[in-house]
Simulated scan of single mutants.
Amino acid sequence: MDSLVSMRVFCLVAELKSFATAAQRLRISPAMASKHVMQLEKRLGTRLLNRTSRRVSLSESGALYFEQARQMLDSLDEVEAAVSNATVVPHGTLRLTAPVWMANTIFAGVLADYQARYPDVRLDVDLSGRLVNLVEEGFDLALRATGTPDEALIARPITRVPFYMVATRAYLDRAGPPTKPADLAGQAMLHYALYPGESVSFTGEHGTETVKLNPVLRSGNETLLHMAALQGMGLAFLPKWLVAADIAAGRLEHVMPGQVIFEGKLFAVYPSRKYLSAKVRTFIDFVAADRRMR
């Protein structure tokens, strides 16, 4: 039995979590798919998949083998396509991690359009907000808004990310509408926990001025800060994509829009150029080219 074929069968079963569905995709019987995996397990001397009557899941050894095998197969597909001047059709599961605030209609639209163009790619998106280890946790790609990407990883800039200071009209009327940075000193701040310090620097036509605010709520979850801002709890410093619709609808106001506070960059981060599969490459190119992300 061809070991390479068995490896492809195993990877597809692992991705789809089903022998029957994988067999249908490969146009073989479920029994043959099971035979391929059993042969692979026998050759490796370890169980790769845990099987019950209702579900299939990776064992600890299977998870390790799956990540290495998937990278190898993706790389092989790329090499064969280059030699034969063919185009590799993106396929499989793209595991992606991104900031919490990317749970917005703009990014959801980008995901929908990408999947419509590449229907053989399944998207597994983690928006937990934690800084994951791409290699150890088996992620293909991370989208990260930062000024200093990890030097141990490959980072491609995608777009600029403006951050706005926003608040409701009710809050601004209560606290006093600011006309200059000094007016913000001591005001209620909905503070992002990963942002160092409680002072904010404003750069405008008269130079840079730093003011200290009063953090009445601290959280590492931008969605909570966004909702608290909508409740009139205080000032929040949030990405434009998350608050643009609220500003347009009048639910939030952009506080002193002439004062530039911070504009970060969104990077596509991945472990190595060596195993840049078609699904990763096309996703990065698709996001970078989409006008909604600018």
Results as ranks from 00 to 15, higher is better:
residue 272 S to H: 06
residue 206 H to N: 11
residue 148 T to Q: 15
residue 287 V to T: 12
residue 186 G to W: 12
residue 285 D to K: 06
residue 106 I to F: 14
residue 193 A to N: 09
residue 71 Q to M: 15
residue 189 M to A: 08
residue 229 A to Y: 09
residue 245 A to V: 06
residue 143 L to D: 06
residue 251 R to S: 02
residue 249 A to M: 05
residue 114 Y to A: 05
residue 162 P to D: 04
residue 21 T to R: 13
residue 22 A to L: 14
residue 149 P to F: 08
residue 270 Y to M: 10
residue 179 T to C: 05
residue 233 M to A: 15
residue 95 R to K: 15
residue 59 S to I: 03
residue 216 V to C: 08
residue 86 A to F: 03
residue 99 P to W: 08
residue 60 E to S: 13
residue 170 A to M: 11
residue 212 K to D: 03
residue 293 M to E: 04
residue 108 A to N: 13
residue 67 E to R: 02
residue 11 C to F: 08
residue 57 S to P: 02
residue 67 E to N: 03
residue 254 H to T: 07
residue 88 V to R: 05
residue 124 D to L: 14
residue 19 F to S: 06
residue 118 Y to M: 01
residue 271 P to C: 04
residue 253 E to K: 08
residue 8 R to T: 12
residue 283 F to L: 07
residue 131 L to S: 10
residue 124 D to T: 04
residue 137 E to N: 05
residue 9 V to I: 15
residue 25 R to H: 12
residue 275 Y to S: 07
residue 30 P to R: 09
residue 222 E to P: 01
residue 121 V to C: 05
residue 104 N to W: 11
residue 216 V to Q: 08
residue 145 A to P: 00
residue 159 T to I: 06
residue 257 P to D: 09
residue 255 V to G: 07
residue 206 H to C: 01
residue 293 M to V: 15
residue 221 N to S: 03
residue 201 S to C: 02
residue 5 V to Y: 15
residue 1 M to S: 15
residue 84 S to P: 00
residue 41 E to G: 00
residue 218 R to A: 03
residue 237 F to L: 14
residue 270 Y to K: 13
residue 205 E to A: 14
residue 230 L to Q: 04
